[in-house]
Design a binder for these strands. Structure first.
Lengths: 110, 110
DNA sequence: CATATTTATCGTAATATTGCAATAAACAAA
DNA sequence: TTTGTTTATTGCAATATTACGATAAATATG
C-alpha cells in the first residue's frame, strides 16, 4: 500500500523513522555535508555542487527544512541555508539513543 | 521518477543513505529494538509483538538481513533472528561520523 | 504418510518518492 | 518599467515502498 501503519508504533519509533527517512537519500546527505563543510551559508550553489536540477534540490531542501534540520534566510533574491544547530543536536540525541542500544549477551542462538 | 541518481554521489554518501533508509520505517525500528531488548533470539514472535501480518514482517526482516544488520538461524520450523553485532558496530561508526560532524562557526547568515 | 506449524515468496493494490520541465514569485538593476 | 536572477511551486512520468492474501517450502508430530 505504500503507507506505513504508524499508528501501531510508539511516538519514539516514528520519530526515529522520520529522521532516518530524511537521511535515506544521498542528495540530502550531500546537502547536509556541504552545509557542515562550508563556513558561510549556502544558497543555490548547492545546485552546482550537487548534480541535480534546481527544482529537485529545492524539494530536498524543503524536506530538510520541514524537519527543522536546516533553516533558510532570504537575502535579496537568494536564500541562505544553514544547519539548525539546536534541532540537529536534538535529532542526534534521538538517533544516538537508538544506535547505541546495548546488546543483551544472553542470546541462545546466533 | 522514484529512482535516486546514486551514481553522482560518493560511496560514503550512498552508504549512509542506505543505512538510514532501512531505519526509515517504524516497523524495522521496532523489530531492531525488540531484538536488542529480548535476551534470547526471536522468531515469529515478532509477528505477535508488532501488529503487522506475517508476510509483512518477513519482508522487513529480509531487508534488515540484506543489509547485514541481523542474521537468522533455522531452528526446526522456526527461524531465530538476532542482531549481527559486528555489522551493527560498523554501521554505527558510519552513522556516527555523519551525525557528529562539526559545525563551522564562521557562518554569516542564519 | 497425513497433518500441523512456521517462515518465505508471489502477486497485486494502494500510496510514496524522485526528478525535472514549465512556470510563478520575489526582488534587484538598468 | 523592463529585464535578469534566484528560488519555490505545479504538474506530471517513472519507479519504489508498504501491506497482505494466497500459497509454497520445510520440518515437525501423530
Amino acid at each position: 500500500m505504500g503507507l506505513a501503519k504508524s499508528e501501531i508504533f510508539t511516538r519514539k519509533q516514528n520519530e526515529i523513522a522520520l529522521f532516518a527517512k530524511v537521511f535515506g537519500h544521498p542528495a540530502r546527505v550531500a546537502i547536509l555535508e556541504h552545509l557542515f563543510k562550508i563556513d558561510t551559508c549556502i544558497c543555490g550553489d548547492l545546485v552546482n555542487e550537487i548534480g541535480l536540477a534546481q527544482p529537485t534540490i529545492s524539494q530536498h531542501l524543503k524536506e530538510l527544512k520541514h524537519l527543522g534540520l536546516i533553516k533558510g534566510t532570504i537575502d535579496g533574491t537568494s536564500v541562505c541555508y544553514c544547519i539548525d544547530k539546536d534541532n540537529w543536536l536534538a535529532m542526534k540525541n534521538v538517533m544516538n539513543a537508538f544506535l547505541n542500544q546495548d546488546i543483551t549477551e544472553k542470546g541462545s542462538c546466533c
